[in-house]
Amino acid sequence: MKIKPFSYFPFFLIAILLCFFQKNVWADTPIIKIEIRNHLFIPSEILIPENTKVKLIINNLDDTDEEFESYELNREKVIIGKRKGIIFIGPLPAGEYPFFGEFFPKTAQGKVIVK
């Protein structure tokens, strides 16, 4: 089957997008550590600067797995029990971004405050 020239178009679009938004990639990434203990996020409130990408290292000290989930941050990741997980968040505009542990949502709650 012959590929028509216009079907390359989307790939051009991706390439352009990638070039355009490349600038954030090499910036220094602050690291923030969160622990999960007894189905709690400790600390449960974290403060990050505006428009900055941040690396969250989540250390699950419980035996049970937990899923870090935030609709506002668009993040979702399973953190295995007794293991660490890495999640990149941001850059974000100022505001509050609640997150929770989807497996134990009543206790595992917290929020990211962007200032």
Binding site: F21, N24, V25, N74, E76, K77, I87, F88, G90, P93
Partner: peptide
């Protein structure tokens, strides 16, 4: 999320 693609606002 894995930082394989650049993140943006």
């Amino acid at each position: 999320q894995a930082d394989w693609l650049p993140s943006q606002l």
